[in-house]
Amino acid sequence: MLKLHSLALTINEKPLFSDFSLSLKQGEKAVLRGDSGSGKSTLFKAMLGLLSVESGSIIINGITLSDDTVSQVRQQISYLPQAIHPFKEESVFDFIMRPFSYKINRDKAPDSDTFMKNISGTLGQLGVDIGNPKEKATRNLSGGEMQRVALVRALFLSRPILFLDEATSALDPKNIARVVKVIAAIPHITILAISHDSVWEDAGFRVIPFPGGEI
């Protein structure tokens, strides 16, 4: 499902990591663990085709990442970044719906009423009660609430791979455990997370040291 072979990445002429390989099977769940600033978030960006790698190959769901396949590769991945910046005046509903306004996702856009119920239901599972998502402005959410709203958006895109970059960094321990439990129970989806929290391995995520050579 996800294969990285002998990857090397340099940013601003500074080598970040080299000879990094990784392989994840369909439905496998893993957490990348390494020092801050070692390039874990940058690796996610490289796998999404947002940065060019110096050498090595990235194969996502059988597609080798290149300039010509970048759009196909992105369609395989849902991505939750570390920092989430909603647009001004965006409601929770608009924030979650935004990717469905893109041409490539339009056929997956759910009908509004069912979607509203699903949003509230999934947010409830994650421990968030925001009332009406159409009326709640994203600017009024706390950091932890915003992270969980962004997680719901990533989940609703229903892609075979999910990248989570410090997805629970703004949550208290009780809510971290609750969110990780929900994520770990999602069937079929391959998940690669970045986190320093041991709760991920307790939930069955395989720990991948980064940068750690051949896995």
Binding site: K45, R74, Q75, I77, S78, P81, P99, Y102, K103, I104
Partner: peptide, 26 residues
């Protein structure tokens, strides 16, 4: 200044024009 936000839109499947639209509107 908001390159990360722009990049996330691309990652979610936006074309350059779609990702740029909110910035253009503002």
């Amino acid at each position: 200044q908001n390159e990360d936000t722009f990049a996330v839109s691309l990652a979610m499947g936006a074309t350059v024009r779609e990702a740029a639209m909110p910035f253009f509107r503002e």
